[in-house]
């Protein structure tokens, strides 16, 4: 399995798609997580993401190792953005390619669910009313 893992200020869907495309794969699944303009009914002006980078990259690699052990995935991309992100901005991209779509859907869902549970990345929410939440 080929893997691309990165944490950067700016990430794109295109770089993920470029990485996973392969003649041996017939199913490509891409999940993008974008900044929403509200949290539980409160308006959000921006999110600020920070991470414990060395550990975050290590935890992302562990997820990739689990994907490789569990499914016949050929390509896996995990990208996470940090810094100020505004509604509509991409915060996370997961891209998976395998021979058939079922595996790709399952592996993609496992990857984003596990990333949200284990990878040391934090967001701070800035609300339209001026308050800041964690």
């Amino acid at each position: 399995m080929d893997t691309l893992i990165a944490i950067r200020d700016t990430i794109t869907v295109q770089e993920a798609l470029d990485f996973i495309q392969s003649p041996e794969c017939g199913g490509e699944v891409i999940f993008t997580g974008t900044v929403r303009n509200d949290t539980r009914g409160r308006g959000v002006t921006k999110l600020f993401y920070e991470c414990y980078e060395a550990m975050a990259l290590s935890e992302m690699q562990k997820i990739a190792d689990r994907v490789q052990a569990q499914w016949d995935v050929k390509k896996l991309v995990m990208l996470h953005a940090i810094g100020d992100k505004y509604p509509g901005d991409i915060a996370v991209v997961i891209a998976v390619a395998s021979a058939h779509r079922g595996i790709a859907f399952d592996a993609c869902e496992f990857t984003i669910d596990t990333l949200k549970e284990t990878v040391p990345i934090w967001k701070k929410e800035f609300f339209t009313d001026g308050e800041i939440g964690q």
Binding site: Y52, A91, V92, I112, V119, P120, W122
Partner: peptide, 10 residues
Amino acid sequence: VAVIPPVSGG
């Protein structure tokens, strides 16, 4: 050594 409060990536 690092303190890891509840994570909230994604």
